[in-house]
Simulated scan of single mutants.
Amino acid sequence: MPRKDVRGKQGAGEAGGEVEAALDELYSTPPAGFVSRREELALRARTDGRAEDARRIHAARRPSLAAWTANLLRRSLPQESRRFLELGEALREAYGALDRAGIKELSVQRRSVVAALSGQAAQLAAEAGQRLSASVRQEVEATLQAVLADPAAAEQWAAGRLETALTPPSDLLPGSAPPGKAARTAPARPATRAPAKDELAERRRERERQLARAREAAEAAEERLRERRTESAEADSESGRAGERLDRAEEAVAAAERHLHAAREELQLSRQERRAAEERQRAAADALARAEREAREAAREAERAERRGRR
C-alpha cells in the first residue's frame, strides 16, 4: 500500500506540472490566439483523461493586451524582472522610514526604471507582432508602478498570468504620501517617553542603510536596463547589416541566375549548331564517298574503253 500511495502522489505531481505548463504556455500566447489555443489545450487534457486540468485550462481568461505585455516582460526578461521585484521590496521598506529628500530621490529613480522597463516591454511586444498604443503603454507603466507599490500586485505579476492591467493603489504608491503628510493625517498617539540618543542614532543609521539598499537596487536595475538597451541597439545594428548582406546576396544570386539562364541558352544554341554541323559533315562525307565511288567507276570505265581501243 505505501508504494501505491507514493505512485499516486507522483502521478498527481506530474499532472499538476502538465496543467501548470499548459497555463504558462497559454498566457505566453498573444491575445488574438488565446481562445483557440485554450480550447486545444483543454481538449488535449480531456482526451488524456484529465478532466480537472481541462476545467482549469478552460477557466483561464484571455488577458488584455497590456496584461499580456506585462506577462511577456516577466517571462522574457527573468533577471531584470527579479531585480525589479527586489527593487520594489527595497523601495517599500525604505519609504516607511525616509525623509522627504530621500523619498524624492527614490521617486526619480523609480520613474526612470519604470519608463525604461516599459519601453523594453513595448519592444518585446513589437517583436511578437503586437504594436502598443499610447493608452496600452500607460496601462503597462501603471502595472509596473503597482508592482513596486503593492506586494500583492508584485506577487500577481511574478506568476506571469495577469489577465488585466494593475492599478497602483494611491495609499501604497511610493511618493504619494510623504512622511510629513502621513504624520498630519495619522491619529494622535499617546505621549511616550522620548527615545534615548543612542536609539535615535540607531534609527538614523537604519534609515541610511535602507536608503543605501534602495539606491543600490535602483542603480542595479537602471544599469541592467542600460545594458539591455545597448544589446538591443547592437542587435538592431547587426540586423541592419545582415539585411544589407542579404540584399547583396539576393542581387548576386539574381545576377548569377541571369548569367546561368544566358549560358543555358548559349549552350542550347551551341548544341543546335553542333548538331547542324554534324549533319552537314555527314552529308559531305556521304557526298565524298559517292564522288569517290563515281570516280573509281569512271576510271574503270576509261580503262575498259582504252583496252577496247587497242584491240
Rank of each mutant, 00 (worst) to 15 (best):
A153Q: 04
A153N: 02
A153H: 03
A154F: 05
E155K: 00
E155M: 05
E155A: 13
Q156M: 04
Q156N: 00
Q156F: 01
W157I: 02
W157F: 09
W157H: 05
W157D: 00
A158D: 05
A158V: 00
A158Y: 02
A159G: 10
A159P: 00
R161D: 07
R161C: 04
R161V: 03
R161G: 03
R161T: 10
L162N: 00
L162Y: 05
L162G: 03
L162R: 00
E163T: 12
E163V: 09
T164S: 10
T164W: 03
T164F: 04
T164N: 12
A165W: 00
L166F: 07
L166A: 01
T167Q: 07
T167P: 01
T167R: 04
T167K: 02
P168A: 00
P168M: 01
S170H: 12
S170W: 09
S170V: 11
D171N: 12
D171K: 10
D171P: 08
L172Q: 13
L172F: 05
L172I: 12
L173S: 07
L173A: 14
L173K: 08
P174L: 06
P174W: 03
P174R: 02
G175E: 12
G175A: 13
G175I: 09
A177M: 13
P178L: 10
P179H: 08
G180A: 11
G180V: 01
K181N: 13
K181Y: 15
A182L: 15
A183S: 09
A183I: 07
A183H: 13
R184F: 08
T185C: 09
T185V: 11
A186R: 14
A186C: 10
A186M: 10
A186L: 11
A186P: 07
P187C: 02
P187L: 14
P187Y: 06
P187H: 08
P187R: 15
P187W: 05
P187K: 14
A188L: 15
R189F: 12
R189M: 11
R189E: 13
R189H: 07
P190F: 04
P190S: 11
A191N: 03
A191G: 08
A191Q: 10
A191S: 11
T192P: 06
T192K: 08
R193C: 06
R193K: 10
A194M: 08
A194E: 12
P195Y: 00
P195F: 03
P195L: 13
P195C: 06
P195V: 06
A196T: 07
A196D: 09
K197E: 15
K197C: 02
K197Q: 14
D198W: 12
E199T: 07
E199M: 12
E199P: 03
E199D: 09
E199S: 11
E199N: 04
L200M: 14
L200G: 06
L200V: 15
L200S: 03
L200R: 06
A201M: 11
A201N: 05
A201G: 07
E202T: 08
R203I: 04
R205Q: 12
R205I: 00
R205G: 09
R205M: 05
E206M: 09
E206A: 14
E206Y: 02
E206W: 02
E206S: 08
E206L: 12
R207W: 01
R207F: 02
R207V: 14
R207S: 15
